[in-house]
Amino acid sequence: GPMASDKRPRTAFTAEQLQRLKAEFQTNRYLTEQRRQSLAQELGLNESQIKIWFQNKRAK
C-alpha cells in the first residue's frame, strides 16, 4: 500500500542471525546498550536493526 515507504528497507536477517536474536530474546527481553553493541558486532548488524527487531518481537 501507499503506507509502505521505500525509505527503510526491511532487513533480511539470516537464519543464523535470527537464531541468535531469538536466543538472546529468551534470556533478555530488553537489551542494554552494551549487549546491543556486542550483538551488532558479533552478527555484523546495525544496532538500530537489532533494537527494532527487539521492539517488534516484544510488540507481538
Rank of each mutant, 00 (worst) to 15 (best):
E47N: 04
T11S: 07
P2N: 15
T32C: 06
Q41H: 08
L39W: 01
N56L: 11
N46E: 12
S48R: 08
Q17W: 01
R36T: 12
N46D: 13
E16T: 07
R20E: 02
K51L: 11
T11L: 12
K60V: 10
D6G: 06
N56D: 11
D6M: 01
E42I: 05
K51T: 14
K57H: 09
T27N: 11
N28P: 01
R20M: 05
A59V: 08
P9H: 07
A12H: 09
G1Q: 04
E16R: 05
F13N: 01
R10I: 14
I52F: 08
R36L: 14
N28I: 04
Q41R: 12
R35D: 07
Q41D: 08
Q17M: 05
T14M: 02
S38K: 12
P2I: 06
F13D: 01
T11H: 08
E16G: 07
T32W: 04
E33A: 13
W53C: 03
Q49G: 03
I52T: 10
A15D: 12
R20K: 09
N46C: 07
N46H: 11
I50M: 02
K7S: 14
T32V: 03
R58E: 08
K22W: 13
A12P: 14
N56Y: 13
N28Q: 06
N56Q: 12
Q26K: 10
Q49H: 07
A4S: 04
T32G: 07
K57T: 13
S48A: 11
A40V: 04
Q37T: 09
Q17F: 01
S5A: 05
S5F: 00
K22A: 10
S48I: 12
R20Y: 05
S48E: 14
L31I: 07
A59E: 08
R10D: 15
N46W: 06
R36E: 09
F13K: 03
E24C: 03
Q49R: 06
M3H: 15
S38G: 09
G1H: 04
N28Y: 04
R36W: 06
R20W: 03
W53D: 01
L18G: 03
K7C: 15
T27H: 09
N46S: 11
S48H: 10
M3R: 15
A12W: 13
E47W: 03
F13V: 05
R10G: 15
A12I: 13
Q55S: 08
Q55G: 05
K7L: 14
R35W: 04
R35K: 09
K60W: 03
T27R: 13
G44T: 04
F54Q: 01
Q26V: 08
E42K: 03
Q17V: 06
E42Q: 06
N56W: 14
E33R: 12
L45K: 02
Q34H: 06
L45S: 03
I52Y: 10
A12V: 13
L43N: 01
Q19V: 12
G44E: 05
S48Q: 13
P2V: 04
K7I: 13
R58M: 08
L21V: 01
A15N: 09
I52L: 10
S5L: 01
R8K: 15
P2F: 02
Q17G: 02
D6V: 04
Q17T: 05
Q37D: 05
L18W: 05
Q37M: 08
E42A: 06
S5H: 03
I50P: 00
R8A: 15
T27M: 11
L39N: 00
K22S: 12
I50L: 06
N56G: 07
I50V: 08
R36D: 02
R20G: 05
K57P: 04
E33S: 11
E42Y: 04
P2D: 15
P9M: 05
L39C: 01
R35A: 10
R36G: 14
E42S: 05
Q37P: 01
K22Q: 13
Q19W: 06
E16L: 08
D6E: 06
R29F: 05
Q41I: 14
I50G: 00
P9E: 10
N56P: 02
N28V: 03
W53A: 02
Q17P: 00
N56E: 13
Q34A: 09
I52D: 13
F54L: 02
K7M: 13
A23I: 12
S38Q: 11
K7D: 15
S38Y: 08
R58L: 14
Q19K: 11
E33N: 11
G1P: 15
Y30Q: 08
L21A: 00
N46I: 06
L31C: 05
L31R: 01
Q49I: 14
Q19Y: 06
Q55D: 12
I52A: 11
R10M: 14
R36Q: 10
T11V: 12
Q26T: 11
F25W: 07
L31E: 06
R8P: 15
K60P: 05
T14W: 02
I52W: 11
S48F: 12
Y30C: 13
A4L: 13
F13G: 01
L31W: 04
R20N: 03
K57V: 10
S38N: 11
A40Y: 01
E42T: 05
R29I: 06
E47D: 05
M3Q: 15
E47F: 03
S48C: 15
K60M: 14
S38T: 10
T27Y: 09
